[in-house]
Each structure stands twice: as structure tokens, then as C-alpha cells.
Design a binder for these strands. Structure first.
Length: 422
DNA sequence: TCTGGGGTCCTAGGACCC
DNA sequence: TCTGGGGTCCTAGGACCC
């Protein structure tokens, strides 16, 4: 029998921090988003204190102080590296691995005479724990959506020890009846609200709902979802990474920004980051969107949110060339007298760099520029982001984000290696 | 005072063409 | 200048995910 499994790391960011700081084990710990704004990962102890996912830090500061919860800024370099290690182990366990997010992968499992899918799942869980040290939950079923349901149960039901096999037909109905509809993968709060009004309260109700109703209220997306709950696969495994369609770089500012120069500096830095990603993927972009917005939480201030898209012709991956167009977009977007909280850029129309024709007379120039960019990227990779900067920059500025309590990047920086003191 | 970032997919509507 | 259906392409916006 062949099945799909979802392998999902438990409290991933907190688990990564605990690997290198064992004092955090058994202690309530949370990890924050960029700018130290929101809670994005919680240990089980923190979850028990009713600290919700995604809440702003200041709203739970009382709980955190009263209980001595450990609070860490996010350390994406560390989490990215641990994620990579986990995926490498998975690739030794299954011929088909889809890296779904930083802490999750879908894999195929094939049972044989000696081992059922559940035993396979348990072996994988043990191997990841042994080689990487991160605890995972594994849900197994015939479709991705059912596997996610199984994975959720594997995580929260203590008796299952982290692995739940939902392939036996006999248990599917009771399990789906016990799954609130808002916990189904693909159902967000808006659809959940709509479904509840229509009397669809559980995953089972959604599975049994009329297809015509689903189609007209939730589009083809909802229809696929309902079929997946019935065991009809609509989402296959994507084992080779699909080419990216867009690259973003956006940030909320540490403090509000009102000057155009400072906004320009922020946009220049976002373009630099996005262009670096673009070159790493060996692609060029055909268009750039720049957006700015005020602080939507300050309801008493004048609000503005706008974006401008401009073509990049010829297509390019050169930071300075993209910055030039981005500044034009910003010029037409900027309004004096507003206080901005967030800005960003999005590169779209991405094409592999080797597929676009180069005009002969441009070839030499673009070759030279690309070589320069390559050197800049290598220097920044080696000595840290923004060691070498392109175009206009203020290295400091109100827009820079806060990261007050980041742990060392133990596995990717020589000077931040874990020190053992005897 | 403080409120994340980076993605994907789908649909509706407008512009344009035949 | 208006009439109309059908097709494509593009963009904005909405919904979702982690």
C-alpha cells in the first residue's frame, strides 16, 4: 500500500533554540517575528499559558513576566540550517520528498510485507530525533488533506506518540467527526465563519456537503478540499521544486518614517535583498512592484496603502538597475505628510537567466555587471549581509528593524559557534 | 509605545481583438 | 457610431498557507 505522510516539526523554532540551549528544555519559551513584534513559535508550556499563535508581544507581556517565559528574537539562519538537515534525513527515508515549508515535508510511504506504514513512520520519527534532535509529528493517509488531519491528531493526542495512521477506512468517520472544520488544512477563519453559518461544523460535515454548494461558495479550491477529505487525491506530491513566480522583500519599520529619503533607503535595501535572492536562483525579473503603507493600527492618522508596478526592460538581476526603476515607482507613489510603517518590493515575471536572449552589444557590459554582482554576493555571504552595498543607502535609519534577543547562529557562523566551558 | 514576512492560487473585471 | 459573442491577457484583490 502506498500512502502520503506529512512530517511536521513540533514547535520548530523553539525546538531549534533548545537544541543549543538545553536550559530552555521544560521551560516556557517563545520565539518572536521580525521586529520582535508577534509570537510565532511557542513551547508546549507557553501554549498551556494561553499564549496564542501570532499575538503581538505587548498583549501577552503580563503573562510572560508573571511566568518568567523565555523570549527570543527569531534566528532564521539557524532555523534554515536545521530545516535543511531534517530534509536531508527525510530524503534517505523516502524516494519522494516535497519540502512544503521550513518545518514540514510531505513524503510518500510504501508498506511491504515486513513493515506497515505506521512502523515506517515511527522509524522516520526516531531517525530524525537521533540525527537532528528535533521532535516531529507524522500523519499518514491517502491524500495530503487527510494526512494533515492525521498529523494534527498525532501532535495533540498523547497516546499516539507522534505518529497517526489514518489509512484504515473504519477510523476515518469518527476522526473527521472529531475535527472542527476550522482545523482542516485550507480552511481559514473567513471560510470557517461561512461554513459554520451554513451548519457545516466538522471535517465530516464538509466531506458530506453538496458539491454544488461548495463550488459556488468556495470555488474550485473548496471542491478539491472536500474531495481530498473523501480520499480522492487532488494535490499530488511536488517532488522537484516548482520554479518560483515571485520574490518579495518587505519589512515593517522599527519606527514610523515620514521622509522620502529614508523611504528610498529602505526600498534600496529591499531591492538589494530581493535581487540577491534572484541571482541565487539564477533568474532575472521582468517587473517590479513597490508598495508603501501607513500604520493601519493608528486609526486616528490618515491612512494610505498603494503599490506601483513597472516593467524591467530588459529583464535583469542587477541590483542597481532594479533600484533605479524602484525609485521611479516610489516617486509616483510617495505622498508628503504621511507617516509610513511598512514598505516592500516584489519581483515578478521571473525567468531563468540563461533563457533570455542578450543583445550582442550589451553582452560584454552585462557580463561585467554580473561578475561584479557575483563578487558582492560572495563578500556579503562571507562577511555578513550588507558588508558591500549597492546604490543609495543609509546604513542606519528609523526603518531598521529591532532584533533584541537573537541567539547565536551556531551552525552557520564561525564566530558564533557554541562555546563549551569546562 | 509595541501589531511579521514570504509565498501560492483563484476570480472578477477591464482592455483589446476578431 | 453602435451592435454582440467569444477569446486572451493583464491586474487587483481576496483567500489561504506556514
Amino acid at each position: 500500500m502506498k500512502a502520503i505522510a506529512i512530517v511536521d516539526a513540533n514547535n520548530f523554532y523553539v525546538s531549534c533554540e533548545r537544541l543549543f540551549n538545553p536550559r530552555l528544555r521544560d521551560q516556557a519559551t517563545v520565539v518572536l517575528s521580525n521586529n520582535d513584534g508577534c509570537i510565532v513559535s511557542r513551547s508546549n508550556e507557553a501554549k498551556e499559558m494561553k499564549i496564542s499563535m501570532g499575538v503581538p508581544l505587548f498583549q501577552v507581556s503580563k503573562i510572560i513576566e508573571q511566568n518568567g517565559v523565555h523570549v527570543l528574537s527569531s534566528n532564521y539562519e539557524l532555523y534554515g540550517d536545521m530545516s535543511h538537515r531534517m530534509m536531508e534525513v527525510l530524503e534517505t527515508c523516502s524516494p519522494e520528498v516535497e519540502r512544503y515549508s521550513i518545518d514540514e515535508a510531505f513524503i510518500s510511504l510504501e508498506a511491504d510485507d515486513s513493515q506497515g506504514v505506521e512502523e515506517l513512520g515511527r522509524a522516520i520519527r526516531a531517525k530524525i530525533h537521533r540525527h537532528v534532535g528535533i521532535p516531529v509529528s507524522i500523519g499518514i493517509a491517502a491524500t495530503k488533506t487527510l494526512a494533515k488531519v492525521a498529523g494534527h491528531h498525532a501532535k495533540v493526542l498523547p497516546g499516539l506518540d507522534g505518529v497517526f495512521d489514518l489509512t484504515p477506512a473504519s477510523i476515518q468517520v469518527p476522526v473527521l467527526r472529531n475535527t472542527p472544520v476550522e482545523e482542516v488544512w485550507g480552511i481559514g477563519w473567513r471560510w470557517a465563519r461561512k461554513l459554520k453559518t451554513a451548519g457545516i461544523l466538522t471535517a465530516f460535515d464538509l466531506r458530506e456537503a453538496r458539491e454544488s454548494w461548495i463550488r459556488s461558495n468556495m470555488s474550485i479550491v473548496g471542491l478539491r478540499l472536500a474531495r481530498e477529505l473523501r480520499g480522492i487525491p487532488c494535490h499530488t506530491l511536488n517532488t522537484c521544486p516548482v520554479p518560483r513566480r515571485a520574490i518579495n522583500s518587505t519589512r515593517s519599520f522599527g519606527q514610523m518614517v515620514d521622509s522620502k529619503d529614508e523611504l528610498k533607503a529602505a526600498v534600496a535595501s529591499f531591492v538589494a535583498r530581493a535581487a540577491e535572492k534572484l541571482r541565487r536562483e539564477k533568474m532575472v525579473a521582468g517587473a517590479i512592484t513597490v508598495f508603501v503603507r501607513t500604520n493601519k493600527f493608528h486609526e486616528d492618522e490618515e491612512q494610505f496603502s498603494g503599490s506601483v508596478t513597472l516593467q524591467l526592460a530588459p529583464m535583469t538581476c542587477i541590483t542597481n538597475e532594479i533600484q533605479e526603476i524602484a525609485f521611479k515607482a516610489l516617486d509616483s507613489l510617495f505622498r508628503q505628510g504621511l507617516r509610513y510603517k511598512k514598505a516592500g518590493v516584489m519581483l515578478t515575471g521571473l525567468v531563468p537567466a540563461n533563457l533570455i536572449p542578450q543583445p550582442l552589444w550589451e553582452a560584454e557590459k552585462s557580463e561585467r555587471l554580473r561578475a561584479v554582482m557575483g563578487k558582492v554576493d560572495r563578500l556579503n555571504q562571507r562577511f555578513g549581509r550588507e558588508t558591500v552595498q549597492c546604490g543609495q543607502f543609509h546604513s542606519e535609519g528609523k526603518w531598521r528593524m529591532k532584533l533584541d534577543s537573537r541567539s547565536p547562529r551556531y551552525t552557520t557562523r564561525w564566530d558564533e559557534l557554541l562555546k563549551v566551558v569546562c
